[in-house]
């Protein structure tokens, strides 16, 4: 996994609530057995017209947002299915961080496992970012070590993330390798568990 330390980028805005993983990556693209190459399918049904051209109405097709690595989204982002193809598609599309008032639980976890930093913000921060970023090329910097986001205009906020996941992201750590350090405890648990289960 690619480590995440700091990121400076402009922000793309998708101000819709309850964006589900069926929208992020429609099911017809889940048949592939690879982990890569999903970016071109991200938001497929919203992003393209029936004739295959980009839909100019779709928010993320706005020229101001092209190349953005930070996504600002509405509440309950990533609800629905557990498909990890959703963060794979977002990462491959170019996003390395997502800021939203709330995330669906499974999606939040799936982001962490793919080097995407999900940042929960309160209503006030969300509204401020929305005002600054909507329709504009608005740039800010995320510093994971410091757990803060700031722009050049002096706006700044702090965000929460569990220490464990922060470490994983900062070091781009192989989680399975880390867990296998606990091999002895897992084996002991299995011995003990036989007694009741």
């Amino acid at each position: 996994m690619q480590p995440f330390t700091t990121l400076t980028s402009h922000i793309a805005v998708l101000n819709r609530t309850n964006v589900d993983t069926d929208q992020i990556i429609p099911k017809q693209f889940l048949k592939r057995i690879e982990r890569t190459g999903y970016g071109r399918f991200a938001f497929f049904d919203w992003r393209y017209l029936d004739n295959g051209e980009e839909n100019p109405q779709f928010e993320l097709n706005q020229p101001a947002y092209k190349g953005a690595q930070i996504l600002l989204a509405g509440e309950n982002f990533g609800c629905g299915s557990s498909r990890e193809h959703a963060p794979w598609a977002l990462a491959d599309f170019g996003f390395r961080a997502i800021i939203a008032p709330s995330f669906a639980d499974i999606f939040y976890q799936n982001c962490l496992k793919n080097g995407i930093l999900p940042i929960r913000v309160n209503e006030e921060v969300f509204e401020t970012l929305l005002k600054k970023a909507e329709g504009n090329v608005y740039e800010c910097t995320i510093d994971l070590e410091q757990q803060k986001v700031f722009d050049q205009e002096g706006f700044e906020f702090h965000f929460d993330i569990n220490e464990h996941w922060k470490e994983m992201l900062l070091n781009g750590r192989d989680e399975i390798g880390f867990t296998l350090l606990y091999e002895e405890q897992i084996s002991q648990f299995e011995q003990k568990a036989k007694a009741w289960g």
Partner: peptide, 21 residues
């Protein structure tokens, strides 16, 4: 009983465990 992503599927296959809050 709960749903997990593919990275977690791999994690369970390899370790039979998951880090969970």
């Amino acid at each position: 009983a709960f749903g997990i992503g593919t990275s977690e599927v791999e994690h369970v296959l390899a370790t039979q465990t998951l880090w969970q809050h």
